[in-house]
Simulated assay, not measured.
Amino acid sequence: MRLIESIAPFYFVLILAEILYTYKYKLTFYSFRDSITDLSLGTLSRIADGVILLGIVFVYQVLQNSFSFGNFLPLSLVSSKSPISWVILFVLVDFLFYWAHRFAHEINLFWASHVVHHSSEEFNLSVALRQSFVRNLFIGIFYLPLAVFGFSAEAYLITDALNRTYQFWVHTRIIDRLPFWYELIFVTPSHHRVHHAVNPRYIDKNYGGVFIFWDRLFGTFEEEKEEPVYGVVKPLGTFQPIWAEVHVFSDLFRDFRLTKNKWEGFLGFFKPPGFRPSDLPAYPKPKPVSPYSFIKFYPKGKETNGFRFYIISQFIITALSSLIFIKTYGKWSHFEIFVFTYVIVFSFYSLGKALNSQTDVKRYETAKWIFWILIAGYLFI
C-alpha cells in the first residue's frame, strides 16, 4: 500500500497531462461527471483496502507458516534476496492475476466486485482508479498460493503493487499501437481498450495485467480492429458512485429473495453474469453496439462553471477527509470508525445525486453538511 500511495501523485500528474492534451487537440476522451465518479470510486476503494489487505496478509502468513514448502526449494527461487526470485514472483503474480481477472468476468460474485471498473462509458487514465471497495478481497484469494510456495508477504505486496502500477498507463486512448515485439509480449493500451469494450467481438478478451501472452496461450486474445465502445452490456445509467459499487450485488440478492428455488438462487452467485433462476424472467438480450449509434448516458442538468466548481470542491473536501480517516482510524474507537465511514459514504452518495442533477440533491447536501458540522464539533470542541 505504501508503494501505491507514494506513486499516487504521479497518477494525478499523468491524468492532468492527459486532460490538457485532450483539451489542446479537442479530443472528447474525458467527461467531467464521469471522471469525478472515477475518482470518487477510487477514494472509496482506498478506505476498504487497508482493512481487507490486513486480513489477506494474516491468512497469507498463516498459510506460509503452516503449509509452505518453500524450505524445500532452492533459496534462489523464493528468497527475497535473490533477483531471480523477484522475476519468478513477478511472472507468477501476473499469471494468477490473469485467472483472477478472468474469473471476475465469468462468475457473478466476482463480477459484482469488478463491474465497477468496467461501468464507465469513457476510457482514460482516470478510469484506472475506478475500483471496487472489495476488489482486494476477491483478487487476494487468488494470490494465496504464493504463500505455499514460500514467497514472503512483503515481497507479494510489493510485486502486486508493481503489477497494478503497470496497469495504470494502459488506460488511455492517446497511445496507438506500439512496436510488434512489445505488443506480442506485454499488455498495451490497444489490448486494454479491447478489454473495456462491449463490441461483441471484444467482450471477455485480453485479461492480462502485464503480459499479454497469457491471453494468447489460453485463447482469450483479441486484436483491436474496430473502434471500441466502452462500458458494460447492461449500462449503469448513473454517475452515482455508491450504486456503481453495489448494483450487481443488489441484483443477485434480489433474485435470491424473489426466486422460489433457493438453491438456484444461491448457485446464481457462482454462475456467469446474466444468469437468473429459472422461475424468474430472463434478462433481455443486449443489442449489438456500434460506435456510430451508441449514446452515452448524460443527465440533462446544466454544467456551468459554478456547478463544476461546487462539485470539485465537494469532492476534494470528502477525499481529503477520507485520506485523514485512512491515516488515523487506528486511533479511533469502533463507534467513531462506523460514524465517520457512514458520513463519508453518505457524502459520496450526495455527490452522486449532484452529478446526476437529481431534484432532491439539496436535501442530501444539507444533511451532509449537518453531519460534517457535528463531526467537527465532536473533534475540535
Rank of each mutant, 00 (worst) to 15 (best):
R2M: 10
L3D: 01
I4P: 01
E5Y: 14
I7N: 00
Y11K: 07
A17S: 09
Y23T: 12
Y25T: 11
K26A: 05
Y30Q: 08
Y30H: 14
S35V: 15
S40P: 04
L44C: 05
L44A: 03
S45Q: 10
I47T: 05
I47E: 02
A48Y: 09
D49N: 12
G55S: 08
V59W: 01
V62M: 10
N65A: 13
F67W: 15
S68E: 04
G70D: 14
G70V: 09
F72C: 07
S76W: 15
L77C: 03
S79F: 12
S85T: 07
W86H: 07
L92C: 12
D94A: 11
D94K: 07
D94E: 09
L96V: 12
L96D: 00
W99F: 15
A100P: 00
R102K: 14
H105A: 06
H105T: 11
L109A: 10
V116Q: 00
S119G: 04
Q131W: 11
Q131F: 11
V134Q: 01
L137I: 11
I139A: 00
G140P: 01
G140S: 08
I141T: 11
F142P: 00
L144R: 05
V148I: 15
F149K: 04
F151W: 05
A153E: 04
A155H: 06
L157D: 03
L157P: 01
T165H: 03
Y166K: 02
Q167C: 08
H171F: 04
I175Q: 06
R177K: 14
L178Q: 10
F180D: 11
W181I: 15
I185M: 10
H192I: 00
H195V: 05
A197H: 03
V198G: 00
V198R: 02
N199F: 13
P200N: 08
I203S: 03
D204P: 06
K205E: 05
N206P: 02
G209C: 04
W214I: 03
R216Y: 00
F221W: 09
V229Y: 03
G231A: 06
G237W: 14
Q240E: 09
P241L: 02
P241M: 02
I242G: 00
E245M: 13
V246E: 03
F253E: 05
D255Y: 08
K260H: 14
F266H: 08
F269N: 02
P281I: 11
P281N: 07
A282C: 11
P288A: 07
P288K: 11
V289W: 12
V289R: 10
P291V: 02
Y292K: 13
F294E: 06
G301M: 04
G306F: 15
G306R: 14
G306H: 14
G306P: 08
R308E: 09
I311Y: 14
I311H: 14
Q314G: 06
L320M: 12
I326P: 00
Y329D: 01
Y329S: 01
W332Y: 15
W332C: 03
F335G: 03
F335M: 07
E336D: 10
E336N: 13
Y342N: 07
V343L: 11
I344G: 00
Y349I: 06
S350W: 13
L351Y: 13
G352A: 03
G352D: 05
N356V: 12
S357N: 10
D360E: 14
K362S: 10
K368I: 12
L379M: 13
